[in-house]
Simulated assay, not measured.
Amino acid sequence: MVEEQSTGWTGGRDAFGDFAPGMVHYTDKVLFDEVWERDGLSKRDRSLATVAALTALGKTDQLRFHLAFARQNGVTDDELKETLLHLAFYAGWPNGMAATTVLKGVIENED
């Protein structure tokens, strides 16, 4: 039996409360308590992979959180800008532009 460790992550609960208990469970307990805590990749690398996927898919609502989270996980603003420029050529220019707009908002809102 696997013992459940908790990182204290409550993003799912904060977003959905009692409205969608399954989404809360899988977000908080599985995704953030288990997947993000695995030893195979650093949180920094997981952040870059997540930013790449969300940019390629054009998922700017989720990207807003994950760009800020990437910064918390040690990815610099310049590295994020360069990552988004690189992705624009592989994920489509409109997706790269949209992601860069989101990053600009994340940075400006912190300052």
Results as ranks from 00 to 15, higher is better:
residue 45 D to C: 00
residue 81 K to G: 04
residue 107 I to L: 15
residue 90 Y to K: 09
residue 63 L to P: 02
residue 98 A to W: 07
residue 100 T to C: 12
residue 29 K to D: 14
residue 16 F to P: 04
residue 91 A to F: 02
residue 69 F to C: 04
residue 10 T to L: 09
residue 64 R to Y: 08
residue 19 F to L: 15
residue 39 D to A: 14
residue 31 L to W: 05
residue 98 A to D: 15
residue 107 I to K: 11
residue 21 P to G: 11
residue 90 Y to D: 03
residue 102 V to S: 09
residue 52 A to E: 06
residue 92 G to M: 04
residue 48 L to Y: 10
residue 33 D to Y: 08
residue 68 A to E: 12
residue 95 N to G: 11
residue 108 E to D: 14
residue 71 R to I: 12
residue 83 T to V: 06
residue 76 T to I: 10
residue 32 F to A: 04
residue 88 A to N: 12
residue 52 A to I: 02
residue 28 D to R: 10
residue 23 M to T: 12
residue 1 M to T: 14
residue 39 D to S: 13
residue 51 V to N: 06
residue 73 N to I: 04
residue 102 V to D: 05
residue 75 V to A: 11
residue 69 F to Q: 13
residue 41 L to T: 02
residue 97 M to I: 15
residue 47 S to L: 00
residue 105 G to M: 06
residue 46 R to P: 09
residue 98 A to M: 12
residue 10 T to W: 03
residue 77 D to P: 00
residue 48 L to I: 11
residue 105 G to R: 15
residue 21 P to L: 03
residue 54 L to V: 01
residue 86 H to P: 00
residue 3 E to Q: 12
residue 78 D to E: 14
residue 86 H to T: 07
residue 103 L to P: 04
residue 88 A to V: 08
residue 50 T to D: 13
residue 87 L to T: 01
residue 74 G to C: 01
residue 107 I to V: 15
residue 51 V to F: 07
residue 92 G to H: 05
residue 31 L to M: 12
residue 24 V to S: 05
residue 39 D to E: 15
residue 72 Q to C: 05
residue 39 D to I: 01
residue 74 G to Q: 06
residue 7 T to D: 01
residue 14 D to E: 15
residue 54 L to I: 06
residue 91 A to H: 03
residue 94 P to K: 04
residue 59 K to S: 11
residue 66 H to S: 02
residue 109 N to G: 15
residue 36 W to Q: 04
residue 73 N to D: 06
residue 24 V to C: 03
residue 2 V to N: 10
residue 40 G to K: 07
residue 44 R to Y: 04
residue 90 Y to A: 07
residue 24 V to A: 02
residue 7 T to W: 06
residue 40 G to E: 15
residue 96 G to N: 00
residue 91 A to R: 07
residue 49 A to C: 13
residue 5 Q to F: 10
residue 106 V to I: 07
residue 60 T to A: 12
residue 29 K to A: 15
residue 97 M to D: 05
residue 88 A to T: 08
residue 68 A to D: 14
residue 2 V to Q: 14
residue 78 D to F: 04
residue 106 V to L: 00
residue 79 E to C: 01
residue 77 D to W: 04
residue 35 V to N: 02
residue 86 H to I: 05
residue 22 G to K: 13
residue 57 L to R: 09
residue 69 F to W: 15
residue 75 V to Y: 08
residue 70 A to M: 02
residue 28 D to F: 05
